[in-house]
Nucleic acid binder design. Structure first.
Length: 977
RNA sequence: GGGGGUGUAGCUUAAUGGUUAGAGCGACCUGCUUAUAACGGGUUAGUCUGGGUUCAAGUCCCAGCAUCCCUACCA
């Protein structure tokens, strides 16, 4: 080398600069799939989840619905699960993860129906519909699966569980059967949305609420025939003789309805016990005809407005609470029977009507519930076409959508008990297909009697660990208040309720023999067999001879019963079913879903498991919130704030506007937020995450790039010989490992995210690596000064890769594959969870180092003031003088500690401050550029003495002492020679 | 309508009822050109609103506002 004549820049070639193929930018679109292919080739998930030495770990997947594109909610859920599973795998556990899909149910059925031509629809049979739905669901599963895999989720993708699989359906029948045999299943009436025009029950999703629906609005008087004694005496005191009140033409309760056709089914009048009611004297007013009663009960608050709307004088005679009205018996104005006044609930308001609600338990949900409280019968005198039946007496044969209302009103008018009739416009549900109004109609349904195992369910809840703890209150309240679970649906795409009805008597055939026979049939042929075969083909041998007498049911199960049986269908939690893999166990270690699943899957799974086995199907339940936009609003197309995970990962149409950030950025987002509440996501947040991703990546790249000539087995410096600075760096690394281990243990990934950032930015970039540059670049390649640093870099980069692996799995593997020296493990995941040797933990290093770093910050501020004054550029142009006075004791102590224990070639305060000269005490330098005193420390900045060494950029006074290198300092000359 | 959750700088987040509310990112200013579509340095700003309890409130209580989830439905 002829350095003497070469231009200064040629000394650059004598430095030990970065070399690594680990690129600064991720190129995630290409690189991530390559890494995933590498894992697949190694069979990494399969081997770790089955062959790891530790205990098994079961995170049981809640099945997403097999319809539609993946959204960020899916990403949050599945990535959280994957972070937990990957952590467990790194920790040596056998974390087998069987992904699932919920495949039955209305949305898919409707999707299929919508896709049919009208000609196809007329030829449609249940079996052909089911075949189409089956195919559709599988197609959706494949689409979603591809998305999940692209996110780097590890799972048994080739053997997922689907609720439409034969074995799953059979296990579900097993759960149902066990509940039947335990006496938890019964048949009863329940009002459902019913479409007379299409003669079917409708689900909420099949209803629409067109504008402009008007109903007859009817006020009627129901004459009292009996009063509770207390009310009677109050009336006497107010001047109304109870005997007159209960005589014809006396007292009546005023009710309001918009469905007069339900009046024949009236079995009660409900009041709100907390509302005030007035008993009023009625007088005719103007042209209005006075009704055939002398007194009316109405809500006090509505009395005045009713005077106007009814055109009556209503003079208050007595004010009572709703509770006082309970026990009045009234005569039905149209039917020959009497019924009670009962206490309803807070659904009874004074917003409209009279404050007294006409109650027909067969035709309304509130009515039904109130009726149950008072053990009223469920009268439903309407057939499936909407025709009133014989039970409706004189109105039999009229139709609820046609002549029932006018006929009934006419009859009411004739009694003189019709107070008022007008048109009323309100929201009313219509059949979305026929565009005709629907009704509420009580129908026979199948129920699980929650009452039968509520106490056990509450006990089971108490045994589970709920995270966050508020989840327990939530599900506890729901389970303790909920009614029985209606598990039947009048649908085709689902698991059949395996029951037979006697064709003549209606008797139900549902017993151990039929259940196990049908379970076996479904296990062999799938649930389609229920529709493909006739009764003779479905009944067990001993009954088959009488098959003609029996009719198979047409109901299917609520899909929540499907997914709620997954502990049986997947984890083998019921006799006769097998778990999908030997590593799975029941109860599961963990369920992890959105907080809406307290009402959904957490609860349906709990109820079935408790009913069958007496305990919860899970030991812990972790919930996450919902994904909102950056302003905390929900994502919607109309607001234009939807973040599509596919676009985020793979890029949009215009990659300049919507770059391909890759799965790791999506995963980093999941790790960055406190998911115990709702989590925000939007373009600004994505950009920030991309910045953090790049910071981590560049930090790793720097570590790798400085190890290109390092082999730990040959070059590593033993811990005990490492300089203080290096020991401090390893102490920081150990502290990071410890805190992050705890963060993952507690599922507090956002703390990991914060700690990772601080580690990369502060500990590494700002401090250690900045100081390390001189050691790495300038020193001779094999100098202790450099090898010791490289020792640390290698130790840190391997552990950094491990710590980020659960979250930034692709980057972690990319780091591992770019380690420039040989390691035993082919994958970072084979290395296991990072650990730190005990000797690294030297908390005693922290205190003096903190003092020195504070001193460094003080010096930096002064250097900056010189820089902004144009007096300095690089900090190496400066020299620093320090004086430590009163108040700087801890700094003085730290410097003494440094001096006493320093490794001279590295632990040098001037190097740590990145300045060319440092003077402690003594006289102030000439030409001080900046001076500041703080906490007893005086800092003075001056230009460094000497000239700039062309190679190491330090200002030294020994430049040019060597004739071959006239622009170099003595240190660099020594390195070159 | 009912039940539940959340609300700390522009963003993500810290803070057993107890110092001047702590970080990282961003933004702005700036240096370096040996991490260079990189790296360093500096600056910046905050407890949703209003009451209450307390010597002391981001933290506990009440009300309101915003927002999300569940639920009911409009007789």
């Amino acid at each position: 080398m002829t350095a003497s004549s070469a231009p200064a820049s040629s000394y650059k070639d004598t430095l030990n600069l970065l070399q690594t193929p680990f690129s600064m930018r991720a190129n995630a679109k290409v690189r991530e799939p390559e890494i995933q292919a590498f894992w697949a080739e190694l069979q990494l998930y399969e081997r770790l989840s089955q062959e790891n030495p530790g205990e098994s770990f079961t995170l049981h997947d809640g099945p997403p619905y097999a319809n539609g594109a993946l959204h960020v909610g899916h990403a949050l859920n599945k990535i959280l699960k994957d972070i937990i599973n990957k952590t467990a795998l790194l920790q040596g556990k056998r974390a087998r993860f069987i992904p699932g899909w919920d495949c039955h149910g209305l949305p898919i059925e409707l999707k299929v129906l919508q896709g049919l031509k009208s000609s196809e629809r007329t030829e449609l049979t249940p079996v052909s519909l089911r075949k189409k739905a089956h195919a559709y669901a599988l197609e959706q599963v494949e689409g979603q699966k591809a998305g999940f895999r692209r996110w780097g989720i590890w799972a048994d993708w080739d053997q997922p569980y689907l609720t439409l699989q034969k074995s799953y359906e059979a296990a579900q029948i097993g759960v149902f059967g066990a509940m039947v045999l335990a006496g938890h299943i019964y048949r009863g009436l329940k009002p459902v949305h019913w479409s007379p025009s299409s003669r079917t029950a409708l689900a909420e999703a099949e209803l629409e609420y067109p504008d402009g629906h008007t109903s007859p609005s009817v006020y009627a008087a129901f004459p009292a025939v009996e009063l509770p004694p207390a009310l009677g005496s109050q009336l006497s005191a107010a001047g109304l003789n109870p005997e007159d009140a209960t005589a014809a033409g006396g007292l009546a309760v005023a009710i309001w309805t918009t469905t007069p056709w339900t009046l024949p089914a009236n079995l009660a009048v409900s009041v709100n016990e907390r509302l005030d009611y007035a008993i009023c004297a009625v007088s005719g007013r103007g042209e209005a005809k006075a009704p055939a009663v002398s007194h009316l009960v109405v809500a006090s608050e509505l009395r005045e407005s009713l005077e106007t709307s009814l055109g009556l004088g209503l003079k208050p005679l007595l004010n009572v609470k709703g509770a006082d009205l309970e026990g009045i018996v009234y005569r039905h104005p149209l039917m020959d029977r009497t019924s009670p006044v009962v206490i309803g609930g807070d659904y009874i308001t004074t917003e409209a009507g009279t404050g007294l609600v006409h109650t027909a338990p067969g035709h309304g949900v509130d009515d039904f519930n109130t009726g149950r409280k008072y053990k009223l019968p469920v009268l439903c005198p309407v057939d499936e076409a909407g025709n009133l039946t014989a039970e409706a007496g004189p109105f039999a044969g009229t139709n609820v959508l046609k002549d029932a209302n006018p006929t009934i009103l006419e009859a009411l008018e004739a009694t003189g008990l019709l107070l008022k009739q007008e048109r009323y416009e309100h929201r009313y549900p219509y059949d979305w297909r026929t565009k005709k109004p629907t009704i509420f109609r009580a129908t026979e349904q199948w129920f699980a009697s929650v009452e039968g195992f509520r106490a056990a369910a509450l006990e089971a809840i108490a045994q589970v660990e709920w995270l966050p703890a508020s989840g327990r209150n939530r599900i506890e309240a729901m389970v303790s208040e909920r009614g029985d679970w209606c598990i039947s649906r009048q649908r085709t795409w689902g698991v059949p309720i395996p029951v037979f009805y006697h064709r003549e008597t209606g008797e139900v055939l549902l017993n151990e023999a039929t259940l196990s026979h049908i379970q076996a049939l479904i296990a062999e042929h799938g649930a389609d067999v229920w529709w493909e075969r006739d009764e003779a083909g479905l009944l067990p041998a001993e009954v088959a001879a009488d098959a003609a007498q029996w009719r198979k049911g047409t109901d299917t199960m609520d899909v929540w019963f499907d997914s709620g049986s997954s502990w049986a269908g997947v984890l083998g939690g019921i006799t006769g079913s097998e778990s999908r893999a030997p590593q799975l166990h029941y109860p599961a270690d963990l369920y992890l879903e959105g907080s809406d699943q307290h009402r959904g899957w957490f609860q349906s799974s709990l109820l079935t498991s408790v009913a069958v086995n007496g305990h919860a199907p899970y030991k812990r339940v972790l919930t996450h919130g919902f994904t909102l936009d950056e302003k905390g609003r929900k994502m919607s197309k109309s607001l234009g704030n939807v973040v599509d995970p596919a676009v985020l990962v793979e890029g949009g149409k215009n990659e300049k506007q919507e770059p391909a950030y890759g799965a790791d950025v999506l995963r980093l987002w999941v790790s960055s937020v406190d998911y115990s509440a709702d989590v925000p996501l939007g373009p600004g947040i994505v950009k920030q995450l991309a910045d953090v991703y790049r910071k981590v990546r560049n930090t790793a790249r720097y570590l790798l790039g400085n190890l290109h000539d390092f082999d730990p087995s040959r070059d590593a410096v033993p811990y005990a010989e490492l300089p203080l600075l290096d020991q401090w760096m390893l102490q920081r690394t150990a502290a990071l490992i410890d805190s992050v281990s705890g963060d993952f243990e507690r599922f507090e990934f956002y703390r990991f995210f914060q700690a990772l950032q601080n580690f990369c930015v502060v500990d590494l970039s700002n401090v250690y690596l900045d100081i390390a540059k001189d050691r790495l670049y300038v020193s001779g390649a094999t100098d202790f000064r450099r090898r010791s640093c490289q020792t640390v870099l290698a130790l840190v980069v391997e552990r950094l890769a491990g710590l980020i692996a659960p979250v930034l799995c692709h980057m972690a593997e990319d780091i591992w594959q770019n380690l420039p020296y040989g390691v035993a493990e082919r994958s970072v995941f084979e290395r296991g969870w990072p650990t730190a040797p005990a000797e690294w933990r030297q908390p005693a290093l922290e205190q003096p180092m903190d003092q020195i770093l504070q001193l460094r910050a003080l010096v930096n501020r002064q250097l900056e003031s010189c820089r902004s004054g144009g007096q300095l550029g690089a900090s190496l142009e400066a020299q620093v003088q320090l004086e430590l006075g009163d108040g700087a004791e801890s700094t003085r102590a730290a410097l003494s500690w440094l001096e006493a224990t320093a490794h001279p070639s590295v632990d040098n305060l001037a190097d740590w401050l990145l300045v060319s000269g440092l003077q402690l005490g003594g006289s102030a330098p000439d030409a001080v550029l900046a001076e500041a005193a703080e906490g007893g420390i005086t800092v003075r900045i001056a230009r460094a003495a000497g000239q700039k060494c062309e190679r190491c950029w330090h200002y030294e006074t020994d430049i040019g002492h060597h004739s071959a290198h006239p622009t170099l300092c003595g240190r660099c000359v020594a390195v070159l020679s």
